[in-house]
Simulated assay, not measured.
Amino acid sequence: MARRSSDLLASLLAVAVLVALLGTASAQQQWFDEKTFTTEGNIRVDNDGSGQVASLLLDRQSGAGFFSKQKYLYGEFSIQMKLIPGNSAGTVTSFYLTSGPGNGTNHDEIDMEFMGNSTGDPVVLNTNVWVSGDGKKEHQFNLWFDPAADFHTYTIIWNPKNIIFKVDDLFIRSFKRYSDLPYPTVRPMEVHATLWDGSWWATRKGEVPIDWSHGPFVVSYKGYNADACAPMGEGKPPSCAAGSERWMDRVPSAAEMETVAWAKKSYMSYNYCEDGWRFPQGFPGECGRN
């Protein structure tokens, strides 16, 4: 009798695990819908067998993007992306958080922007943090793989202690909070994903514009996940689901900071804390502390 009860319990646990896995897979498959996102421009939604794939198209007439209808105050946000193959110079592909349009004093933003490349050159990933309309905190990296050959996962973790940027399982940057320095803590943010013409800026500081003979340009997104807190109103703490402490208290470990150092040493192409021309009056406060 005890053996039978044990077998039954094992069977029930196996079913429960299977149901949980199927639920997760279903959520991944159906991540893109009109209840979750507002869309703009030319977007195609397909299914590659593992779930939905949203493809953004850029041509001479229009770029494209999708934007979360929900705003968040802290969270872990990730998505898989396959970038433009071949010559993508002049294009900008993004995955970022923003409190709203414009660059005014009420604007916060956390950016992962991929600047298109001429064939054979590395794709540059630009990471940046804006607080109260002030950006200029870029770390740029030459990606060490071909981001158009397959999907890779890009993650932003935003909590009261730091902002962490990840590529696949590697930590590449941590923007630490200091009590006396600006940090995004009060403005809820939407999730944005866009593809647009950045000829004036993207490739070699605008030296190489888009070659439209290679268009339309296509970027594909899948596997989106937002494990985040919802704002409840001014002066009230955000509403967070059970388990949010997994990322809410997250800071890089010593081993993870080693990958940050590796990315900086081997692949960083721009560091605002080393750009004396840009800051003739002195570097931002965090530069001397990190």
Rank of each mutant, 00 (worst) to 15 (best):
C287F: 08
D249F: 12
F145D: 04
A263F: 11
K82V: 02
G198Q: 10
E109T: 00
G75L: 11
S253H: 02
D59R: 05
T24S: 15
T38Q: 13
V15K: 12
T155C: 07
A202L: 14
N106T: 14
L125Q: 11
R289T: 07
F151H: 04
D168R: 05
L58K: 05
D7R: 15
M81C: 00
V92P: 00
I156P: 01
V124M: 10
A261R: 15
E109A: 05
K71I: 10
L97W: 08
Q29W: 11
C229D: 13
W144V: 10
K166N: 11
K136I: 04
F77I: 00
S55K: 02
V219W: 00
K161W: 11
L83A: 01
N106Y: 09
E34Q: 13
I210N: 01
Y178A: 05
F66N: 05
D275H: 03
N103A: 11
I163M: 06
V219G: 00
P231N: 13
A261N: 08
D146C: 07
M268Q: 15
A16K: 12
V17N: 00
Q29T: 02
G120P: 03
R204V: 04
V129P: 12
D211I: 08
P122H: 03
N142V: 04
E138T: 03
G285Q: 13
V167W: 00
N162W: 01
K264V: 05
K222R: 15
F151L: 10
T105P: 09
